[in-house]
């Protein structure tokens, strides 16, 4: 289960500033607050495994407004890659499909239940095992490159969303306003002090 996290920036809401952003930026960011596009890449089965995987990778709350897996599905459907792939990995979409099938099969082997149906601690133990494999191949893939693929896509989705910005105190877009108060412990009126740090 997702832990209850202290709110270090209570009341801070990056997206509340959207009227101060330029139209192109506001359009790109506010779209993420609306409904995601329909799933086009993942099969329903892959989707269920991916949801469970990302819930664990990012410890997502059940009511988290960031639809991480829908954002990943969009990127894969549109082939919006990072512009490279490792020689020992297939292209990103295929790598996601193969690695999700790997999780599912690990779960059936160890617990006789599909990955998505497992309780979170068991899911964590399967994911954690992949991370610790080192150079040993995992379902024909190098585990470190699989880990890199999962975390890159998952973190890009979560920390590209205003919900992710709010809990780290990041105000998001800054055009055309820019910043006037630079320096250590200097804040703009729209920034909030960290109440849970140090």
């Amino acid at each position: 289960m997702a832990a209850t996290r202290p709110n270090r920036f209570p009341g801070f809401d990056a997206a509340s500033q959207w009227r101060h952003w330029d139209a192109a930026t506001a359009g790109a960011v506010m779209k993420r607050l609306g409904p995601p596009p329909p799933f086009r890449y993942f099969t329903p089965d892959e989707q269920s495994t991916a949801v469970a995987l990302c819930d664990r990778l990012l410890d997502l709350e059940p009511d988290c407004p960031v639809n991480v897996v829908a954002m990943i599905d969009s990127r894969l459907a549109e082939a919006e890659t990072d512009g490279w792939r490792y020689e020992d990995m297939p292209e990103d979409g295929r790598a996601w499909s193969v690695s999700l099938a790997g999780l599912k099969s690990d779960a059936v082997d160890r617990f006789q239940i599909p990955f998505a149906e497992l309780d979170p601690p068991s899911q964590n133990s399967i994911i954690g095992a992949v991370r610790k494999l080192g150079s040993e191949a995992w379902h024909g893939l190098p585990p470190d490159h699989v880990w890199s693929l999962w975390t890159r896509y998952a973190c890009t989705a979560f920390y590209g969303h205003p919900f992710g910005w709010n809990e780290i105190g990041f105000p998001g877009p800054a055009y055309p306003s820019g910043y006037k108060n630079l320096g250590l412990d200097a804040r703009e009126p729209r920034e909030k002090a960290d109440e849970g740090g140090a």
């Binding site: 832990a3 996290r5 809990e167 780290i168």
Partner: peptide, 14 residues
Amino acid sequence: WGADLRERMSDYVH
């Protein structure tokens, strides 16, 4: 990763 990642990320401004 997981809760650990989220907690450390929330320290970004420091």
